[in-house]
């Protein structure tokens, strides 16, 4: 066995040498040896977890999604032709409005097909991120809380503060309405509903309910989300994963 291998390798080296000589004769150049390219998965997965951190670094006890890190990742995904689709998995309690809307806008304007999957929770500023994807899926047990923006521990005493708060509120509502099937009337009604949350106004939507009002496209899990992503990739003529 060993001897056979010994005898096989010189002839192999000889034929390789011949090939090089051949290419020099024919083309006048030798091709440089190429390092194998690192394997890139066709679908990438971005997890939006815990608090969405914005301008303020949150204390270490919070689990956070750092937007300054997520945004360049989205740029890398968008620029890499080998990445065919992005699955966004959400389990977030909300967070910074500006950071949340920034991630939502980035997702929304990407050409790479995106599917969002709400698992556990997609509360507050998580809602615009969920609807920003091309297609949104919510698991049957996941919840989304729709409630007004508030400043805890601060009494709203001047009209300017109220107006500012209202403007922030408008940005979130407008984004959700523009990127899902839910109407502004329904969303506002849910946001300011009393009696549903014990100490607050707002509505908790569980799985199916989020689909019924048109906020999310479908109830399902990983299988549904990946199948949809594959479908979108194939529609783009890229050929998804088998």
């Amino acid at each position: 066995m060993y001897g056979q291998q010994e005898s096989a390798s010189p002839s192999e080296a000889g034929s390789q040498e011949k090939a090089v000589v051949h290419s020099i004769k024919e083309l006048g150049q030798v091709s440089a040896p190429q390092a194998p390219e690192p394997e890139v998965q066709p679908f990438h997965c971005l997890t939006i977890i815990g608090q969405i951190e914005g301008h303020m670094v949150l204390p270490p006890r919070n689990k956070t999604t750092k937007y300054e890190h997520v945004i360049p990742q989205l740029v890398a995904i968008e620029q890499n032709p080998k990445i065919k689709g992005l699955l966004v998995v959400l389990n977030t309690v909300g967070g910074d409005i500006e950071a949340g809307l920034a991630i939502a806008e980035m997702l929304n304007t990407m050409k790479t097909p995106t599917v969002s999957l709400v698992l556990g929770g997609g509360h507050s500023i998580g809602a615009p991120i969920a609807v920003a994807a091309d297609y949104s899926v919510i698991s049957a047990t996941a919840t989304m809380t729709i409630h007004p923006i508030r400043l805890s521990g601060l009494v709203i005493g001047v009209p300017q503060t109220y107006e500012y708060l209202d403007k922030m509120q408008e940005r979130v509502i407008r984004f959700i309405v523009e990127h899902s099937r839910v109407t502004q009337e329904v969303l506002r009604e849910m946001m300011f509903r009393t009696g549903e949350l014990v100490r607050d106004v707002g509505t908790v939507l569980v799985g199916e309910e989020a689909v019924r009002i048109g906020l999310i496209d479908e109830v399902g899990g990983l299988g549904v989300a990946l199948a949809r992503l594959n479908q979108m990739v194939q529609k783009n003529g890229e050929g998804g994963i088998q």
């Binding site: 949150l58 204390p59 909300g94 409005i97 509360h123 507050s124 521990g153």
Partner: peptide, 20 residues
């Protein structure tokens, strides 16, 4: 400005601690 279901005092707990 935060838009979250978690009470603000819970989010900000430990904010005064000096970061490493």
């Amino acid at each position: 400005m935060l838009y979250t279901v978690v009470p603000l005092e819970d989010v900000l707990e430990g904010l005064e601690e000096e970061p490493a």
